[in-house]
Design a binder for these strands. Structure first.
Lengths: 402, 402
DNA sequence: CTGAAAGCGCTTACAG
DNA sequence: CTGAAAGCGCTTACAG
């Protein structure tokens, strides 16, 4: 009896050209052809019809156990693998999804997108799906390549990350009834799986206010992004709740980039040198702000505390390590993938998920300077650890998903 | 006359279910069906055979200009898009490549791989190829999914990044005659496109030695990697050339990670407190080393200079910004993609490319402390710029590719 | 429970 | 220069 996991055998010799007639030889008592084995050969060898092999392949309950086992054995013996082009051409599904990103330079090198992509790929792999990578460059959209993805049968669905209200082409998917889900973004009433930016902003501002900061700035980005607007809203509300009136001069656009974050921090500090804390809408802008503050002679966190959003892997290795709102981007990617498949199968017709965040307290935040000075005399100094420890705050892991 | 770039028209109404008989109506004088248009309908409308449409589609020179134009117009009018599953099933190519990465956690969030992936995707898009993402997890290899990529006709070729001599499964591609190219790695005699790590190491060590450093450490990684071995070789040779004997105690494995880099720096500095410069085999380890040095009370670069390899985007935004060997990873990905296509088409049967590097001088390097002290008195201080400037050294852009 | 046959939408010799 | 026909390798009603 053969072991359970018989590996497919490779017919290594290919003396015949691709167009030569299929030459079959008998070796080890098994029929082996020099070309790829197809379903017809399996059928012949197992003495059943091609239809039966197909049904076995697709685990149809209509096939008797005996027949199924016999066919299965033949499949293993011959090392048969169904041609997925033929499967998809005849069948309903391509078993592929596309990830569509904005037209940023070297977009796939961005750690934010990388987390989402990793989450999607891992989950897709487990579901038997392949993932292709696409970027929405202007010419791409003009040529309607995003719709072509479906029309030419490349994919069953698309996962979009990094888009906002301004990306009007997103509506094309809805018009074509093409399954599409936004990951970590909301646009109109489209399907989405997002991190809870409101909750994240609350967690960040609770920490900042608790540390005694009263002059708190916001480096925002892309007012076209619904999640970014939510952060701005919570920022205004939480300060108001603490008796601090909203001041537009304390907010600046950082364009989601490190350079933009540095530039925004510079404008803010020049306008309001009394700022003692800055909340940034992502880690890159937060790190850019730190960079500016340090090169302008300020100490982070003693002079100014910084809080970001994302919790990218290298944010823990910055100096100082970054206090930030952890966004479950990897999980959002995976969940979007799963829901998208259910959507493709018609099991659900609406995707709307909201994943909880938590704050990761690291070195870039401290007491407001005025409190810090008071506490200084009463406190002992401890050496900083080599590897930055992180403290998790406000985790809502009981799953308050919408 | 219709404009040149007529967009395909969508039959927006789908009152008929998917399985309803194909309903054709006439609107605007054009035949429009509620289902996807296929090649047969184009042929009927253009009053030619299906074969002719196919030949027009594939720009065969055997079709007369008049016929070609007429068919082309019908294609535009009907908004016909060939089903690529059918094209690939009948034809020779899938028009897809796979990117295969090692089984690291969240591998796609890694900026190093991200640069390579971006380079591949951009070039593949221009070549009309799609790119799918795969990860070589243990079970994946055990199930021979990497070979299945070809056997089940998912792809025409595979681009591998991040592997080394220990990844024995790479040989499977050669046995199956499956086109595969290694990006930024060499293994045995397999096809590859690499950055010139020898040149990079020379550029880094030239700079370090010129700054007067004599006690120079190396944080290496993966001796199974041929490129990493090359850096170690050049390190030993350049020091020897400068009259500094090789000392194993000055080298430590950093496992290619930031944590590993920090740990390696700690071991090195405890063993040899006199070290004034460290060369790390990648940026992550370099940034980890900086992190350790700073938290242990040392100043980078005044006490210890650090040089990395990669030039990742965020390395320019570290504090201090990182002096590093720029690896043309984006370009390597693109070139590998291009060569792989030539290999698939049988135009070449061997890929071996070597791309030049250059050093980017930033803030993490300075004169050796002893020289620095001497120079101190004679030098004026300048304030550091907000955005770190970079100085490019040793660029060999005249293309000395092997 | 299984088989014969039509069909998915293309490409590619082969004829003319 | 163009067409009729076979074929790529599957799936899916439809019969029995």
């Amino acid at each position: 009896m053969l072991p359970d996991q018989t590996l497919p055998r490779e017919a290594a010799d290919s003396r015949n050209g691709a167009d030569a007639p299929r030459a079959s030889t008998t070796r080890n008592g098994l029929k082996i052809t020099t070309d790829r084995v197809n379903i017809r050969e399996v059928a012949e060898q197992a003495k059943v019809s091609v239809a039966t092999v197909s049904l076995v392949l697709n685990k149809s309950p209509r096939i008797s156990r005996a027949t199924s086992l016999r066919v299965q054995k033949t499949i293993n013996d011959l090392g048969y693998q169904p041609n997925r082009l033929a499967q998809s051409l005849s069948g309903r599904y391509t078993y592929s999804f596309a990830i569509l990103l904005p037209a940023l330079r070297h977009a796939f090198a961005d750690a934010y997108f990388g987390e989402i992509i990793s989450g999607i790929c891992d989950r897709a792999g487990k579901m038997g799906y392949k993932v292709i990578l696409e970027q929405a460059k202007p010419q791409y959209i003009k040529d309607r390549k995003h719709v072509e993805l479906f029309e030419r049968r490349f994919v069953d669905g698309v996962l979009c990350a990094g888009f906002n209200d301004k990306h009007r082409f997103l509506a094309d998917f809805g018009e074509c009834k093409c399954p599409m889900v936004l990951v970590d973004n909301k646009v109109a009433s489209m399907d989405h799986v997002v991190c809870d930016y409101r909750l994240g902003a609350e967690q960040a501002l609770n920490a900042i206010l608790q540390l005694g900061h009263r002059s708190v700035a916001l480096i925002y980005a892309a007012p076209e992004s619904q999640t970014a607007r939510q952060v701005a809203e919570v920022y205004a509300r939480k300060l108001a709740d603490a008796g601090i009136p909203f001041d537009k001069a304390l907010t600046e656009d950082g364009c989601f980039t490190d350079i933009g974050g540095a530039a925004a921090a510079e404008k803010l500090m020049k306008r309001r040198p009394d700022i003692t804390a800055i909340l940034a809408n992502n880690d890159k802008m937060a790190l850019g702000a730190i960079r500016y503050l340090q090169t302008s002679g300020r100490n982070v966190p003693k002079d100014v505390s910084i809080v970001g959003f994302d919790d990218l892997q290298h944010s823990a290795f910055a100096n100082p390590s970054l206090t930030t709102v952890h966004l479950p981007l990897y999980e959002a990617g995976g969940l979007a993938c799963e829901r998208l498949l259910e959507r493709v199968h018609g099991k659900i017709d609406r995707i709307s998920e909201n994943l909880p965040t938590h704050l990761v307290l690291r070195e870039s935040t401290s007491l407001a300077p005025i409190l810090s000075a008071a506490a200084e005399s009463a406190r002992q100094r401890e050496p900083a650890p080599a590897t930055p420890g992180s403290q998790r705050v406000g985790g809502h892991d009981d799953g308050n998903r919408g």
